[in-house]
Structure formats: structure tokens, C-alpha cells
């Protein structure tokens, strides 16, 4: 099963095993991971599932979409080159595991 590790700003990490195709946002919200809100239900409309992807996984990610790119300009925490929206990234064959850092705020 693919795994997702969410690391909180204080360094604590939680590793989840999820079904193939599960988005980071759905995994986080369904498992009560603090710091991922997903207010719009995964429509890339609210930018409250902002995560920082660890660089070693950058190549396995889907390309940044134009909508996602624009929404990332509106995140509560600072946008960096590692910023993505958790609702736009799914685990799967090309991404069997991933580690992401959760920003300090989403709203």
C-alpha cells in the first residue's frame, strides 16, 4: 500500500498507509491530520490543503496545473518552490511513498 508521511511544524511525523489513488488531502482529512483543512472538498478552490513536498519526491509529482499555480499564490503560509495543493497529488504506482511538511497555517 502506498504511504504518506505528514510532518508537523513541530517535527512530529505521522505515516499513513492509503489505497492507491488517494489524494494527500483526502488521506489527511480522513485521518484527522492537523493542519490540512481541505475546505472546498478537493476542487483546488480554497488553498487550505497547502503542503511542502520533500525535494526527493519532486520528480514523481504530476506537473503543476495552471489553476493550482494561481491558487498557490493565495496560501496562508508562505509559498515556496516546494509548495503544492494536497488535493492535486495522488499516491499511486509512480508515487508509492511521499513525505510532506505541513505549513504553520491554512486559513
Amino acid at each position: 500500500m502506498p504511504s504518506i508521511t505528514f510532518t508537523q511544524p513541530d517535527g512530529t511525523a505521522q505515516r499513513l498507509e492509503v489505497e492507491q489513488g488517494t489524494t494527500l488531502m483526502r488521506a489527511a482529512v480522513s485521518n484527522g491530520i492537523d493542519g490540512i483543512v481541505g475546505e472546498c472538498g478537493g476542487q483546488a478552490m480554497c488553498a487550505t490543503c497547502h503542503v511542502y513536498i520533500r525535494p526527493e519526491y519532486a520528480d514523481a509529482l504530476p506537473e503543476l496545473g495552471a489553476d493550482e499555480d494561481e491558487m498557490l499564490d493565495c496560501t496562508a503560509a508562505e509559498r515556496t518552490e516546494r509548495s503544492r495543493l494536497g488535493c492535486q497529488i495522488s499516491t499511486g504506482a509512480s508515487l508509492p511513498e511521499i513525505i510532506v511538511d505541513i505549513p504553520a497555517g491554512q486559513v
Binding site: 482529512v29 480522513s30 485521518n31 484527522g32 491530520i33 481541505g38 472546498c40 472538498g41 478537493g42 476542487q43
Partner: peptide, 24 residues
């Protein structure tokens, strides 16, 4: 969450798998 109900869930590729507002 209700918003996806009338959108993703109904697309030919969609599955009506509920997205909880908060985990259990």
C-alpha cells in the same frame, strides 16, 4: 463534504465515496 457531490462524484470517472469533513 457536500460540494463534491454535484461535481466530481457524478463525472463518468467519479465515485461517490464520501469525503469526511473531519476524520473519525
Amino acid at each position: 463534504q457536500r460540494p463534491p457531490l454535484s461535481k466530481d462524484f457524478l463525472s463518468p470517472q467519479g465515485t461517490p465515496k464520501p469525503l469526511p469533513l473531519r476524520g473519525e
